[in-house]
């Protein structure tokens, strides 16, 4: 591809918007050197082209991923876009340039720096979602199960199918504090909505009792002779602890502190 001149693209921050950047770049035969969303505007030395989001164009690019590259590559684009790292838009763009050239083989080219970087990011967000399927904890507050998470990457779309299938009969809410959004579920329907702040009803004594029993179980199941904190931290890094019932600090309103953790068991 011949580079005419260098442009920075500004889009609306949605996946459709990014797909329109791809449409624009390819139809103008130019290679953007920077892509950023106008939610996070950046200083740039390059001339900026505003890319309007057109669902029809985005749809054409989206379908081409499947047809001209592969369904796996489409999944990478979709999941790569959920990641939080800087420059994800340009990385996805570069990946697609390569993909349209090489076809389905592109996802095998793990030695290529662009492919490799996208692959690691996709793997990382997949791992984050997988870990949270385990580490996420619900608390029942006035009949609704409520969980709070602070994930790296916007994992709610990846968690939604799992939790709504598993708890299909429950009303639940998963609040992503890091991204200001929540997954809402009631039997038969779910959706992701922006939620900045959530007023929570206080915990009932019944709920506190379940938490106390679970903590008691957690302490009892450890074998003292095999204690290995480093191993635990490897598997369950500290950044998740604040929202994991059995290892988080007790709520201020006086849940009895389990000072005997080291000697229990």
């Amino acid at each position: 591809m011949i580079e005419k001149d260098s442009w920075a693209y500004e889009y609306d921050g949605s996946l459709d918007g990014l797909l329109c950047c791809v449409f624009e770049g390819f139809s103008r035969r130019e290679r953007p050197v920077q892509i950023f969303s106008h939610q996070a505007p950046q200083m740039t030395l390059y001339p900026v082209r505003q890319i309007a989001t057109d669902p029809e164009r985005a749809g054409r690019v989206w379908r081409s991923l499947d047809q001209k590259i592969s369904p796996l590559a489409r999944d990478w684009v979709e999941q790569g876009f959920l990641c939080d790292f800087d420059g994800k838009e340009l990385l996805i763009y570069r990946f697609l340039e390569l993909g349209y050239q090489k076809g389905p083989a592109v996802t095998n080219m793990l030695g290529n720096p662009v492919v490799n970087q996208l692959f690691s990011q996709v793997r990382a967000i997949g791992n984050e979602a997988h870990l949270l399927k385990g580490f996420l904890r619900f608390e029942e507050r006035s009949g609704v199960l409520i969980a709070r998470i602070e994930p790296k990457g916007f994992v709610l779309p990846l968690l939604a199918p799992h939790f709504s299938s598993r708890f299909s009969g429950e009303a639940f809410l998963i609040h992503d504090l890091a991204h200001g959004a929540a997954l809402l579920h009631r039997p038969g329907a779910w959706g992701i909505v922006p939620v900045e702040h959530l007023e929570l009803a206080p915990l009932t004594s019944e709920e506190k009792e379940f938490q106390r029993m679970w903590k008691g179980y957690y302490d009892a199941i450890a074998i003292r002779e095999r204690e290995n904190h480093r191993c635990r931290l490897c598997h369950m890094p500290r950044r998740y602890w604040a929202h994991i019932t059995e290892v988080s600090a007790p709520e201020p309103e006086g849940r009895p502190a389990l000072s005997s953790r080291a000697s229990a068991g």
């Binding site: 385990g134 957690y218 204690e227």
Partner: peptide
């Protein structure tokens, strides 16, 4: 119904012995 199983299994927590 309540519940599901995933082929890879899911770890929910790790005790002080790292298990």
């Amino acid at each position: 119904a309540l519940g599901s199983c995933t082929p890879a299994g899911i770890c929910h927590s790790f005790s002080a012995d790292g298990r």
